[in-house]
């Protein structure tokens, strides 16, 4: 599936069973991001498929 990491402005192609699985693979702390699947917010336990487009939005910003 296509995964876009907002903080790093990086696009990846990865496979993962769930949102939590994806964050674990990327070593991203779930407390610091929101997950968006096909433009809708999802919780980390939601199942993912290869055809999904995922965005990982950073919760942290500012100074």
């Amino acid at each position: 599936m296509k995964v876009y990491i907002e903080k790093e402005k990086k696009q990846l192609d990865l496979a993962a069973k769930t949102g939590a699985d994806l964050l674990e693979k990327l070593k991203i702390n779930p407390a610091t991001v929101l997950l968006v699947k096909n433009k809708e917010i999802i919780l980390p336990d939601e199942a993912l498929q290869d055809s999904d487009e995922i965005q990982i939005l950073s919760v942290i910003s500012g100074g």
Partner: peptide, 27 residues
């Protein structure tokens, strides 16, 4: 929580992009 404000901004469709101060690494 900061995570809640990000979710609120997303759901309300506020135009918010990731934007971190360039000086943050020194803090």
């Amino acid at each position: 929580l900061e995570k809640e404000t990000r979710l609120f901004a997303f759901l309300k469709k506020f135009k918010v992009e990731f934007n971190e101060c360039p000086n943050i690494n020194l803090s």
